[in-house]
Write a protein that binds this DNA or RNA. Structure first.
Length: 539
RNA sequence: GGUGCUAUCGUCUAGCGGUUAGGACAAAAGAUUCUCAAUCUUUAAACCGGGGUUCGAUUCCCCGUAGCACUACCA
C-alpha cells in the first residue's frame, strides 16, 4: 500500500530563515505537490534560550512571499493583498488535526514518550551537570557518553532507584539519555545517497529530554512528531545525515520501524569563495543577501538584507534555488514553480555541495524581470521614485521609460540610475563624457540645432514610422531623424559629434537609450530647455 | 582526532561503459550603434591521483588525496 505523501518543513525560530533552509522548504514543497501530498510546517522551538522573537512570523512570511504554500501546521493567514509595507505584521493560523504544531506546546505529549522509553529500558536518567561533563571531557580524551563510559557517571544505571527518586523529588536537574546498544551496524536508506551504514559505537547516549526547561531535544521531539504527524518522507539538509542512524534507532525503540519515514539528505549550500557552508556572515562580507526578506533581529539588533528588498522577484529566487542542487534531464534552465513541481525528482538531486553562485542569481532575476509588464514594474518602481523625491509621477510615462531601459537592469532598484535623467534635468555633466564628446564646435552645433528644433510642431516632435533599413529589416524612424540627419549631412558635421553633444545636453552623460526615445519622453519644451541650459553652463 | 558524505570547465551542472565530454552563469573577441547597455555570433575553459574489472572507463570497485558535514542539556 502506498502511504499518502506527507512532508514537513520544520525550522527553528532562532533567527531569519537562511537561504539554504528556503531551498529545503522548496524541495519539500515540490515533492509534496508532485505527489498530491501534504506540506506541513512545524516549529521546532525546543531550545528556549535561542528563541528570537519575530522569527516565526518571518519564516512564514518568507514562504508566503515565495509562493511555497503550507497545507497543514502553521502558516501565514491568507488575506493580505500583495502589500510590501506591512511586513513583520502577518497573522499566523494553525490548520490540521495533528497539532499543536509548535513543539513548545507539545510538552505533555513528549512526557508520555519519554516515559515509554524509560519504562522499556531504552533510556535512563542522568544527573551529571554540564560542569561535571566538561570536567570529564577535559580529563578523558575524546570522551563520549556511551556504553564505555555510562557506568562511571551519575545516572539511574549506576545509582540505586531510591537515590534517583530522592534526587528527583529534591528537584535536582536531570536529563533523560537514550541508551545506545554498542557495536551494531545501523543501516539508513537515503533516497539520494543510497545505503549509509554507521556503527552504533560512534553514537553517544544522546540527551532526549532536559528537566531544566521541561523540553525535549531535537532528536526526541523530531521523531515523536514525525511519527504522530504521519510524515512519510523526511527531506532535510545533509548536516543531519550523521544523526540519521540515531533516529532510526529511536524509531525502533518506539516500535515504529514499520512506519518510519523515508530519508533524503540534501547537499549543502557552500560559500561562493573559499571553504565551508554558506553562513549568515557571508552575505554581508560578499555583498549579497542570504535571507529571503530583510530581517530585523529584535534580540541582537542586527539587520540582515533580504532578496525581496534587494529587488528580487520571488519566481527568480525559486528558479535559482530550484536549480542549486537539482537539475532536470535537458538543458532547460528557466523553470516556473509549476514546471519544477512537474519535473522535480529526488533522484536527480545532486550529492555534492553547491557553491552559492550569486552571479547566476542575478541573471535569473534579469530573465524574470523582462517577463514582467512595464506597468507591473512601474508599480514596483514607484516607491523608489518617491524615495528620490518624485511624488505622483505620470505612471504611463514611468511604464514607457521602463520599457526603454528594463533590458539593461537585473533589479528594479537599478532602474533609477538608468532612468533618473527622465525625471530630473542634469545639474552637472559627466566629466569623462564631456572630455570625449563635447568638442569646441559643440556649442555652435547645439545652437544651430535649436533653431532647427524650435519650429517643429508638437505632433511632429513625437511622430515615428516604420521603414526598412538597407538589409530590409523593419526599423522605427523618427520624424526628428528626417530633420536632423539631412542637416548634419549637408553641413558635413559628423553624426557622432552632434548627437553625442546633444545627448550630453539631455542626459548629462554619454549613456542612455536611443536619443529620439529620450526626446519623445521629455517632450519638446523640456528638451529645448535642457539644451539651452547646457549651452549656458558649458558655453 | 574519530565517523560519515562527496569529487566533470572559475561556478551551477548534463553524462548513467564506446560522445568531437553538452548546456548555462561569469570571462574574452567580434557584429551592431549617436552613447552606455542590451542583443546576436564566436572563442577559451573540466573528467583529482593511483590501482583494478573490462575488448574498452569520466562512468563500476578499491586505495590515496582533497573538500564538506557531524562529533552539545543547538537545531
Amino acid at each position: 500500500m502506498e502511504r499518502q505523501v506527507r512532508v514537513r518543513f520544520a525550522p527553528s525560530p532562532t533567527g531569519a530563515l537562511h537561504i539554504g533552509g528556503v531551498r529545503t522548504a522548496l524541495y519539500n514543497y515540490l515533492f509534496a505537490r508532485q505527489h498530491d501530498g501534504v506540506m506541513l510546517l512545524r516549529i521546532e522551538d525546543t531550545d528556549s534560550t535561542r528563541f528570537v522573537p519575530g522569527a516565526e512570523e518571518y519564516i512564514l512570511e518568507s514562504l508566503d512571499w515565495l509562493g511555497i504554500e503550507i497545507d497543514e501546521g502553521l502558516r501565514a493567514k491568507k488575506s493580505k493583498v500583495e502589500s510590501q509595507k506591512s511586513k513583520a505584521d502577518i497573522e499566523i493560523e494553525a490548520v490540521g488535526s495533528h497539532g499543536p504544531y509548535r513543539q513548545s506546546e507539545r510538552r505533555e505529549i513528549y512526557h508520555l514518550y519519554v516515559k515509554q522509553l524509560l519504562d522499556s529500558g531504552h533510556a535512563y536518567i542522568a544527573f551529571d551537570t554540564p560542569e561535571e561533563l566538561e570536567a570529564k571531557r577535559a580529563e578523558i580524551p575524546n570522551f563520549q557518553y556511551d556504553a564505555r563510559t555510562r557506568m562511571m557517571m551519575r545516572n539511574s544505571l549506576t545509582m540505586p532507584a531510591e537515590e534517583v527518586q530522592a534526587l528527583m523529588d529534591k528537584g535536582e536537574k536531570y536529563v533523560v539519555r537514550f541508551l545506545v546498544e554498542p557495536n551494531e551496524d545501523v543501516h539508513v536508506h537515503d533516497l539520494i545517497r543510497g545505503e549509509v551504514v554507521i556503527n552504533s559505537n560512534i553514537l553517544d547516549d544522546k540527551v532526549l529530554y532536559k528537566s531544566a526547561d521541561d523540553l525535549p531535544t531535537y532528536h526526541l521531539a523530531n521523531i515523536v512528531d514525525d511519527h504522530l504527524m504521519e510524515i512519510s518522507h523526511v527531506i532535510r539538509g545533509e548536516e543531519w545525515l550523521p544523526s540519521a542512524p540515531l533516529h532510526v534507532l529511536l524509531y525502533r525503540a518506539f516500535g515504529w520501524q514499520d512506519t518510519m519515514p523515508q530519508f533524503a539528505h540534501l547537499p549543502l549550500l557552500l560559500k561562493p569563495d573559499g571553504n565551508g557552508k554558506l553562513s549568515k556572515r557571508d552575505g554581508d562580507r560578499l555583498g549579497f543577501p542570504v535571507f529571503p526578506l530583510e530581517f530585523h533581529n529584535q534580540k541582537d539588533g542586527t539587520v540582515s538584507s533580504g532578496y525581496r528588498e534587494s529587488g528580487y522577484l520571488p519566481e527568480a529566487v525559486i528558479n535559482f534555488l530550484g536549480l542549486l542542487g537539482w537539475h532536470g534531464t535537458g538543458d532547460k534552465e528557466i523553470y516556473s514553480m509549476q514546471e519544477l513541481i512537474e519535473e522535480f525528482s529526488l533522484d536527480r538531486v545532486s550529492k555534492s555541495g553547491a557553491k552559492f553562485d550569486y552571479e547566476k542569481g542575478k541573471w535569473f532575476n534579469h530573465q524574470y524581470l523582462q517577463l514582467r509588464t512595464n506597468e507591473e514594474l512601474a508599480q514596483m518602481f514607484r516607491p523608489l521614485l518617491a524615495a528620490q523625491g518624485i511624488e505622483n509621477p505620470d505612471m504611463q510615462m514611468v511604464a514607457k521609460v521602463i520599457g526603454l531601459t528594463k533590458d539593461r537592469v537585473n533589479f528594479v532598484p537599478e532602474l533609477w540610475e538608468q532612468t533618473n535623467f527622465f525625471f530630473l534635468a542634469p545639474t552637472e555633466y559627466d566629466e569623462k563624457s564631456l572630455k570625449k564628446r563635447w568638442k569646441e564646435d559643440s556649442p555652435r552645433h547645439m545652437t544651430e540645432m535649436l533653431t532647427l528644433l524650435e519650429p517643429i510642431s508638437e505632433e511632429d516632435w513625437h511622430r515615428s514610422y516604420e521603414t526598412r533599413d538597407d538589409n530590409g529589416n523593419t526599423v522605427i524612424r523618427w520624424h526628428l531623424d528626417d530633420i536632423i540627419m539631412p542637416w548634419i549631412a549637408a553641413q558635413e558635421y559628423g553624426v557622432g559629434i552632434v548627437m553625442n553633444a546633444f545627448r550630453i545636453c539631455l542626459v548629462g552623460a554619454a549613456r542612455g537609450p536611443h536619443i529620439w526615445n529620450i526626446t519623445d519622453v521629455l517632450g519638446k519644451e523640456e528638451t529645448l530647455h535642457r539644451v539651452r541650459k547646457a549651452l549656458e553652463v558649458l558655453g
